[in-house]
Amino acid sequence: MTLWAVVIAGAAAVVFAAAMLWSRSLYNGAVCLLVVLLQTALIYVLRGAPLLGLLQVMIYAGAVMVLTVITIMASGGAAAAERFADFALPRGLAALGVAAVSAELALTLAGAPPHAATVAAPGLTAAFGADLFHSYSLATEAVTLLMFLAALAVLPDKEPS
């Protein structure tokens, strides 16, 4: 059952990625990428990496996609009306997304106990956490510093007097 959930999540991710490629609306493209990221997060959870799945949802589907949508909105100008003319996803695509999520939930819940997806490698998440704060602690600190530096990039310039 978990296998079929992974297959459906992968197929949905590929379909929405193709829709992102062909979509002329930037907003639709961002929403399609959001669905792809959520589907890959679900695959992480089903493969036994729930912490990374949650990180993917928080960092990508949360922060980065919100920034992307805000940038699309801030890139207004003369063509804004054209770009935002079609805010909604095509109905067929939206229905496909809802059907895929429903099927994945049904297959995951019906197949086995809820923890079955994560018992494939017991202790892997604990070892991952230990690695992150021991052998990877310097990299973690460097990435934290990088995030602070990246935040400086979005600060506005001083207005010329």
Binding site: A49, L51, L52, L55, Q56, I59, Y60, A63, V64, L67, T68, T71, L124, A127, F128, A130, D131, L132, S135, Y136, A139, T140, V143, T144, L146, M147, L149, A150, A151, A153, V154
Partner: peptide, 22 residues
């Protein structure tokens, strides 16, 4: 587990890259 830690680092670096790109 080390590959998972590498993925966590890649996630954060990619987020910073997206911020700089935007």
């Amino acid at each position: 587990p080390e590959a998972l830690a590498a993925v966590a680092v890649v996630l954060a670096v990619a987020a910073a890259e997206a911020v700089v790109g935007l």
